[in-house]
């Protein structure tokens, strides 16, 4: 069997196996390359994620008292939020938000507080249309990936369907999602072929497909060598009047 014949056959049959996936790779790759990753991450949608702490901190609830109350604390974070000082106490069991002036526990954050925080963090032009406490791990949305529940899900009515996830324990903005992120994630699923969790690119399906895809690309490049080779002249059967180049013939009756 001649090489170009073999190359075309191989390319064609490999296309059957991996052709559609190759298109998914290319199209999803083009999307991921083209759309700014900072936009996908939602950076333009948020503000006030960190705030400068005030200068006058003399009246704070003392840190040594916090350590007395929470002897298991591995970290005590002092931050400002909506202008007010807060402590976030982390232990092996979880986190607690405290009012840094009174020392009072602010956890858990209620619905109106979650909405106020979401509005505080939001830099878009929409309004909140829903705020739901997610605590049923059987009904967790895939877009929060492996982030632990509970979480306040706050949805906005802007064009790109922005959704904020706010921690009910610390009030932090855990993550934000929007239409373009969701599309990105959907395409990422096809790109890495992890249709279940959309995170694991060490899966065997991807490995096999990528190997076949490599062969597919190589046979394509191989085929290119033949396709671009200078066109030979066809050997016309039965009637051979086209053999040779007639331009060499000069009419001259002997």
């Amino acid at each position: 069997m001649k090489a170009p014949f073999l190359a075309r056959k191989a390319h064609k049959w490999l296309a059957l196996i991996v052709g559609i996936q190759a298109m998914f790779w290319m199209v999803s790759g083009a999307y991921m390359a083209t759309v700014d990753i900072d936009f996908i991450h939602g950076d333009p949608l948020v503000k006030n994620v960190v705030e400068p702490v005030g200068k006058d901190l003399a009246e704070l609830y003392p840190m040594s008292d916090i350590l007395e109350r929470y002897p298991q604390a591995t970290r005590v974070q002092f931050i400002a939020r909506r202008g007010d000082p807060h402590y976030i106490v982390k232990t092996a069991q979880g986190s607690t938000l405290l009012d840094a002036t009174t020392g009072a526990e602010r956890t858990p954050i209620d619905r109106s507080e979650a909405m106020a925080l979401a509005t505080h963090y939001y830099a878009g032009d929409g309004e909140i249309i829903a705020a739901v406490l997610l605590d049923d791990s059987d009904a967790r949305p895939t877009e929060i990936q492996s982030r632990p529940l509970p979480l306040w899900q706050v949805r906005f009515d802007d064009r790109i369907e922005t959704t904020f996830y706010v921690s009910p324990t610390t009030g932090e903005l855990i993550t934000r999602r929007h239409t373009f992120w969701r599309l990105y994630d959907f395409l990422w699923m096809f790109h890495i072929m992890d249709y279940e969790n959309r995170t694991d690119f060490n899966n065997n399906l991807l490995r096999v497909a990528a190997f076949v895809g490599l062969l597919f690309a190589l046979t394509g490049v191989w085929l290119l060598f033949y396709s671009l080779k200078k066109r030979q002249q066809a050997v016309i059967p039965v009637d051979d009047s086209n053999i040779g180049d007639r331009s060499d013939l000069v009419p001259k009756t002997p």
């Binding site: 069997m1 001649k2 170009p4 014949f5 073999l6 190359a7 075309r8 056959k9 085929l223 033949y226 396709s227 080779k229 066109r231 030979q232 066809a234 050997v235 016309i236 059967p237 039965v238 009637d239």
Partner: peptide, 19 residues
């Protein structure tokens, strides 16, 4: 019976002629 071909059957090289 391998007819001449550059494109391997793609219908682009015009070499694999028969009558």
């Amino acid at each position: 019976i391998v007819l001449p071909s550059n494109c391997g059957g793609g219908g682009t090289c015009g070499l694999c002629v028969v009558n």
